[in-house]
Every structure is written in structure tokens, then in C-alpha cells.
Design a protein around this nucleic acid. Structure first.
Lengths: 204, 204
DNA sequence: ACTTTTGCTAACCATTTGGTTAAACTATTT
DNA sequence: AAATAGTTTAACCAAATGGTTAGCAAAAGT
């Protein structure tokens, strides 16, 4: 029975993940989630009480999956260029497997800026201080061209994440079909870090 | 009386713009739009028939504002580096004035990929062929390092747009308050093109 | 065996929501 | 001034939606 329970609770969360990530909090319907999970709508409330709580379960899990992946690499002891390579490669690979995740998180944070504020204080929220220091140091040592750590960080995230969030728009503008666009995304596993390193490395 | 009519129709569109761009199609409420416009809800339907049509009016206007701005610069006759400078500077300045616009468009396109497909065929949809050719040429002439035109284009858009779309997240991660983050965005008017040009320019 | 707890569902409920209607009001035409 | 056409609103409606209830079914505890 524990078995069946876990099964249904997990089925609900999975269905909710699907629907919420695709349609957002306001676009999702409890009935649709129940249908996708193959169970009665009342069971959603049995396990998660309300739409809001079910949503938060989905969101927090999504954030818990995606956030530590940010922090882990950035706080490692790798040299700067290796770190950038590993980060972009790892992150792009990960998001290819979860293409709805960044858009979902970003959209919901835009709806609830206060909610975003709270997240900051959570344990698993990525801390980039070490990375910022490392950049400052690299600038000071003349390894890279002068750049503000925050600007470089924003650039790295933008180049990594935006091609997923803005996929329909970019697909349209580049006039690529789905397959070709996926190829382009895949190439970025190495292209992005090359681009960034070219931009900052100090020629001497 | 023409005056008052135009006033109300415009008031509605403005209110709708505000609400839709902030909350999205599914999050917006007709009553809220009516309240913001200071008129009766029935009047929304008098002028725009349905939520869907009102939404499309807002979306198409938004897209008509933002899209030609893309195409104009990219299809000009400027040298590549100047074009990149002018594009990023112009676009960032523009989006600072309309910070909700990119997120709105991107989110709604993600909800309706078919809708995105249709947009492609509209007159004002930005055409980047000339820009792509220009990049190819610059690579061939050895002015810039080898890079696929589409990859460079995606990089430019990502660096320009994402800091607005992902503002709450980036604000949190960089630990900047609103004012400081706005400063960061403003600096990007020149920082972004510097970064890109450093990344691609051919040292000899 | 039987009692209790836990998992699950059909039917129901209250509120919200997009949309309509009929009438009032205002301006324009004749 | 009377008729006409366009604008605006209060009141209303049907459907959708999140949520609840009461009872059944299946384990688990005794």
C-alpha cells in the first residue's frame, strides 16, 4: 500500500510538473493535472491541499534541481577558464534534458518578485561570491581583460540560458526548423565557452 | 465625442497592455483591465469583442513596436562592428523603457508555438539574412574569428535581452538591489558590444 | 474476525470569470 | 425638436474552476 501511495503521490507531482512547467501557475488547471495523472481531482487536494501548495511543491523541486547545479561548479576550485567551460557545458547539457525549466522559473519569479526575494535566503540558493572573487583576481593578475564580475556572470548566464527561454522567437528569426535549432543548441556546449573566453582572455 | 471615444478605446488598450504584459494572457482578468481603464467591463467587449481579441491587439502592437527595431539596424549598411554597437546600445536603451515587453512576448510565444510560426510570415517580422551574409563575409575576409552567423546572432540577442527577462533571478544571484541592478543594465549599453567585439575580432 | 486507519472517488458547492442584454445617456442627423 | 445612431452602464447568465463532502475500498493493527 505504501507502494501504491507513493506511486500516486509521485504521479500527481509528475503530472503537475508537466502542466505547470508548460502552462504556468495561472494557465494550469487542476482537472488537467488530475487527468494527466490518471486520478480523481479530489486526490490532488488529498495530497497537496490546494493549487498554491501543489504549485509550490513543483516550483521548489524545480529550483532545488537547477540551483545547486549552478553553485557547485562556480564554487569549485577549478581555474577560471576550466570553470567556465565546465559550467556552460554542464548547464547546457542539463537544460537540453529539461527545456521548460528555465522559462518556468523565470516566468514565475517575474510574477512574484517577493517570492524571488525569499528564495535568496534558502540554503540551496547559489552563492557566487567565490566566483566573483576569482574574476576580480584574474583581472588584477592580468589574466583577463578588465570586466566587472557581475557583468561577466550575467553574460555567462545569458549565453547559456536564453537560447532555451527564447527558443520560439530565435527559431523564427534564424529560420531554423526544430531539428536544426536543436543542433545549434547542442553545438553551444562548446561554442559558448569559446566565445566567452575569447572575449575576456588577455592577449599579450 | 470622437475625442471621448478614442480616449476610451485607447484607455482600454493601455490598461490591457499593462495587465497583460505583467500577468500574461492566462493571469489577466477582464475586470482588472476594466478597473484600470476606469470603465465598465462591458465596454471592453464593446470595443474588442473578447479577451482573445483584446489580447491579440496588445500582443500585435507590442510585437510591431519591438520587431522592426531589430530588423532596421541589422539590415542597415553599417560595418559589422558599428552595427553591433548600434544594435545593442539601441536595444538595451529601448528595453529599459519597456522592461516587461521581452518577457511578455517570449512567454506568450512559448505558450503558442503555432502562433509563433504565423508571426514569421508577417511583414514586419525581422529578416536577418543580410546580417548573416555580412558575418559570413567578415569571417571569410579574416576580420573576425570563425563563427556561425546563427551562433553569433543568438549570442547578441541573448546578451541583450536576457538580463531583462531574467531580472529577478539575476538580481537575486548577484545580490544587487533594484538601483544597483538598473545601473548594471545601463552599463550594458556599451559593455555588451565591447564583450562581443572582443570575442570575435581577429588579432593579427 | 473486527476495528481502525488510510487511500480513493463521485457528486456537489461557492466563487470567479468571460461574456451578454436591455436600458439609459449622449451626440448627430434631419 | 424629433428621430437616429453611437456610447456606456447595471444587472444578469452560463460555464469553468478550485475546493469540499460523504461514503466506499483496501490495508493495517488488534
Amino acid at each position: 500500500m505504501e507502494n501504491k501511495t507513493e506511486n500516486n503521490e509521485a504521479k500527481i507531482l509528475n503530472a503537475a510538473k508537466n502542466i505547470f512547467q508548460q502552462k504556468g501557475m495561472t494557465g494550469a488547471r487542476m482537472q488537467e493535472i488530475a487527468d494527466k495523472a490518471g486520478i480523481n481531482k479530489a486526490l490532488l487536494h488529498y495530497y497537496y491541499r490546494s493549487k498554491q501548495l501543489l504549485f509550490e511543491a513543483v516550483f521548489n523541486q524545480a529550483f532545488k534541481i537547477i540551483a545547486p547545479k549552478l553553485g557547485a561548479v562556480l564554487n569549485s576550485d577549478l581555474p577560471l577558464f576550466d570553470k567556465i567551460k565546465q559550467f556552460t557545458q554542464g548547464y547546457i547539457s542539463f537544460v537540453i534534458e529539461h527545456p521548460y525549466l528555465p522559462g518556468f522559473i523565470i516566468h514565475e519569479l517575474n510574477q512574484n518578485p517577493e517570492f524571488a526575494q525569499q528564495l535568496t535566503k534558502k540554503k540551496h540558493f547559489p552563492n557566487i561570491q567565490k566566483f566573483q572573487k576569482q574574476i576580480e583576481q584574474a583581472v588584477k593578475m592580468g589574466e583577463i581583460k578588465p570586466i566587472s564580475p557581475n557583468q561577466l556572470f550575467v553574460n555567462i548566464i545569458s549565453l547559456t540560458v536564453f537560447p532555451f527561454v527564447g527558443a520560439p522567437l530565435l527559431k523564427g528569426m534564424t529560420n531554423l526548423n526544430d531539428a536544426a535549432y536543436n543542433d545549434l543548441l547542442s553545438s553551444r556546449k562548446t561554442e559558448v565557452s569559446d566565445f566567452i573566453i575569447n572575449a575576456i582572455k588577455q592577449e599579450k
